[in-house]
Design a protein around this nucleic acid. Structure first.
Lengths: 178, 178
DNA sequence: AGCCGATATGCAATTGTTTGCATAAATTTC
DNA sequence: GAAATTTATGCAAACAATTGCATATCGGCT
């Protein structure tokens, strides 16, 4: 029930085609909500029917029309309504935690923890780079950018939590080996 | 593709009925993987067909049989296979981050952050209580409990990350108010 | 005796998401 | 000039998960 709202947020920043959105959901906003292009196209069509977005078509000869979507008033109203309703707590679903809990094969867990550690470190590096680049001085952040900044901070803090977790797992597994 | 494995992990700890599992998925292992009883019953039936679990029925007169499930050899083999295959990185999906990113109504965000902060603090308190109770001395943890301990540590570290995030959001929103 | 909560199982419908496939022009790279 | 990548859209099938409903007994409380 929230890919719609992620799309509304994204469109409220800037109008876009489904393709553009798919790229955004693979980068910026995609750090907080993943979605494939297939899903985006389908949801966009539904949202269009509902009147939350409108599309402007560009003819392209032999190919299907290119459609640029923008948010409508009802769409903005829905976004406000959603913002104002309390968000349900995230459903925790961690393959890694289940794997740990099972503790069937410590070598595999070590490998997995190593891979995860690496990818969370990359993620953290990326987020921190963004932070330095876009918000060098937290006191001077424009009001319009406060939300994006705080979302980014979340990415950083959660990545750090995950890194700490992986490091602990690896430390524990290595101490166990002796 | 992982509720099966969470069930296998849980059954490998101790045989159980669907009902028992549903309660576990609402507490211990449920901290890392949520599932409803309906889903559990359905998946158990499928796993039974696949031969990953077997069930022993107890007749109960007018009512449907009570079935106690336990893990089979093929089930244990599948659990090992799953453990040894690299876990796909968790798909991040955070309503809260999307809401922040949109930043439509800061009062609602403040409320939301306050609620989340509270629930993560409760979670953390619960985890830390478990840690004190079951693992007072990390150096003396039995091998068989290492996995559960490390999963618990994950819960603690991620809860702390989320708490830090909520606190930052609230601090930022309050400084903005002036 | 009546009510409530716990025990115990499950079907059905719907919604949400992933995966596989398909098409086709424009642009960049070798 | 050929090949690969990017731009751009979408359908269909399968799988995963949620929500609503239904049933029935047992034990404890009032």
């Amino acid at each position: 029930m929230a890919i719609e709202h992620a799309i509304l947020v994204s469109l409220s920043e800037k109008s876009a085609t489904g393709y553009d959105l798919a790229r955004r959901f693979d980068a910026s906003i995609g750090h907080f909500w993943r979605a494939t292009h297939q899903q985006i196209y389908k949801v966009l069509a539904r949202m269009d029917e509902q009147g939350w977005v409108k599309s402007e078509a560009t003819k392209r000869g032999g190919r299907l029309d290119k459609k640029t979507y923008s948010i409508t008033d009802p769409g903005a109203k829905e976004l406000l309504r959603w913002t104002q309703s309390p968000s349900s707590p995230e459903v925790m679903r961690s393959d890694f935690a289940v794997k740990l809990r099972g503790f069937v094969d410590s070598d595999s867990i070590r490998e997995d923890a190593t891979t995860r550690l690496e990818s969370y470190r990359e993620m953290l590096a990326f987020y921190e780079e963004s932070e330095r680049k876009f918000y060098p001085d937290p006191a001077k952040i424009k009001d319009s950018a406060r939300g994006a900044y705080l979302a980014l901070r979340g990415g950083i803090l959660l990545a750090q939590g995950n890194i700490a977790w992986c490091e602990e797992v690896l430390a524990e597994l290595n101490s166990e080996r002796r």
